[in-house]
Write a protein that binds this DNA or RNA. Sequence first.
RNA 1: GCUGGGUUCGCAUAGCGGCAAUUGCUCGUGGCUGUAGACCACGCGUCCGAAAGGGCUACGGGGGUUCGAGUCCCUCACCCAGCA
Length: 412
Amino acid sequence: MLKTPHGDILTPNFNPVGTQATVKTLSALDLKEIGAQIVLSNTYHLNLRPGAQVIKEMGGLAKFMGFTHGPSFAKSAEGKPTMTDSGGFQVFSLGAALKKVVMKDRQGMSLSKFSKSVFLSPADTVHVLPAVTKTTAEKQLNKLKAAKVHEDGVWFYSHIDGSKNWFDAEVSVSLQEKMGADLIVAFDDHESPLWDYETTKLSVERTNRWGVASLAAQKRRDQLMYGVVHGGMYEDLRKASAMFTDKHFPAVSIGGSYTSKDVLYNTLEWCVPYFQDDKPRHLLGIGEVQDLFEGVARGIDFFDCVAPTRRGRHGTFYISPQNGGSSKQNFTMNIQNVKYSMDQEPIDPGCECMTCQNYTRAYIHHLVKADELLAQRLGSYHNVYFIVNLVKRIRESILEGSFQQMKEQWLQ
RNA sequence: GCUGGGUUCGCAUAGCGGCAAUUGCUCGUGGCUGUAGACCACGCGUCCGAAAGGGCUACGGGGGUUCGAGUCCCUCACCCAGCA
């Protein structure tokens, strides 16, 4: 359990991602109904729009988005727990990963996930592989300018209006203090999984410097700051980073982008032993079903991931093992498939979410094909419910001493 | 009836005599891990093949010119517009 100024959070927990102070398609009421204990939002995005000052004036992130105990306008309304990411990830997604290109295998299908992106090197060189084709997305991205990393911060070009913005530890922390989430994240530099050892090492050192600067910039005492472990796929860098992060921060998180599940799980095994028992550990950006089990098994307390909401909007929905879900397809089904056009079952028979209690696969299949907005909402609702409540059940299984059994049931 | 325009992958479109032929939609399938992305990719005449590739058929019907025709000529059918 983690205590925050706005309430206690039972762990392990999945934090839904609400980048722009909204979990896309879901209302704060939905989130409470689903049982979300906390929402993760993003400093970079919120500062571009509507601006940290607006959020401060509106009573802080939780109240701004109506994520409160009881009705938002009640006099006694208190915000529920929130977290903001530092904007460090955007150093990566709008920088090194900006021009990521999808590679094709011989059949023209995408390669398995984790192995299909190329990234800009620090020298701004695109690693173009022979099989790469120029996509419309890439053409559009070429118009955007990549973020430029300097030793003490980053120049971003806004993806909204192209304006140039400076971000560093002080800027990030002061914005996060203004927005007032309970949990905040130190400003970090994100390595590309394709960088070599030396380049990655320089990046980790940057993260360390920015981390110390983030702590130094912190004025409020009521926000818990996570340091971020980096080091890519290199064991000694990860271990040194884990040690450093644990030494300086009251809470620890693991950042990165992983070329395979094995790399991810190895990373956890390298890092977690260096974390003190009483510190919350957050695995940034991760949250597919298998990863939740493997993460908890390796000592992770918090997860966040855009997969439930993005998948929900794109028509892939989580299903339980008894309905055919397996790690092979990340426990998902694609509602767009023709075979569901006359299917009278709910998405995941046995699921108690609003979507599964009220709508058939056939209906949602139709909504998706017809490009109706309700499809995105019903899908997001189900997916977030599925993941949040899966982790809740994991929590309960730990208390009952049956976690290992549950994990085996799901993963085999 | 005359004159002009038109007929190309389910629909809509592109196509100086030289590659089963463009693009959009639909359709089919796959992907998505701290949200740039209500997005992206691939496929879509037919047959064989895992693939590379190969065979067949095809730009309203028929005929002609040409080494070669969706493209030029003649003719028929149908559609649209204007004039009678």
